[in-house]
Amino acid sequence: MKKILAIILVLSVLLFNVAMAEDLLQEMDIAFLPKSVGGAWFTRMYEGGIEVYAAESGSTSFQSGPSAGDAAAQNRCVQDAVAGGVEVIAVCPFSPEQIDADLGKAREDGIIVISNEGSTLVNIDYDIEAFKNADFGAMAADKMAQGMGEEGEIIVFVGSLASTAHVGWAQAIVDRMTEAYPNIAVANEGGVFIETGNNAANSYEKAKEALKAYPNAKACFCPSSTDTPSIALAIQEAGLTNQITYVAVGLPNATRTYIEDGSIDVLMSWDPGEVAQAMCRAAAAVKTGRELKTGDDLGVFGFNSIIVEDKVITGTEWRMITAENVGEYNY
């Protein structure tokens, strides 16, 4: 009798788990609203994430966004999506403060709102973060410190000073350096981060300028996937490939040549497609009325054991790509 009970118990748990995983595949009408359309990052989020989820679940989806980071234009995209009557808005806000009110109107209309890199937003169901900004920044700081022999000056770039994630990582690097590496300092006075604008031509010019302004710099960090390759080019052209430890965020396909030749020492990366899938799965959980808890498995890499705090869901893994392992990744 006990045995049978145990078997029933095991079976029911198994069935429940399968049911849970299927719960997270719901047929929905999803609007993906990135900061800007067309860049490698958001294209991957859409094609390798939202569309993959749509195919698995039978959902429909579209993406819409400004062609360059523009808060007002993104707000119009939210308004259009609301007017179009979608079920889910998956949004990567350019400026969280400026988009929040429009997202509030979307939620009043019963639309499920899931954001990414928007943990300060109020009017959302969930915000999905790939990881804790502090952990990510600390890891970047450790890699930089390791490469520069734990002393010297660093240059910290950010794509946009308005980006919570970019500034969060940059600040976490500074905090970690202050705490653990007393001989490392930020090169520019006052420790202000240099804004590169999420634009290849602009970041190339800014990086060239910064490398000249701070000739003693021994490490750089760039959080913007658009700007990472052109900063690598600036480092390469200045002949600083060996002198500077360049730790950056980006996609392996976009930066492969620079990783292989050592201009980029460590590429910190996660597959944006997986984040976008996690956004859809969180939306599905909201749709079915299921509450997500710390330790839940969303069924995608990075989100196999999530941390849930209030509305913020955080993944726990990312990839560290160097010249040795860049060949293993293709996204």
Partner: peptide, 17 residues
């Protein structure tokens, strides 16, 4: 020439210039 100089063709790059 501009695209060659930065080694990447990013269709948004010249915007606002």
């Amino acid at each position: 020439v501009g695209v060659s100089n930065i080694q990447v063709a990013n269709p948004y790059d010249f915007q606002n210039r």
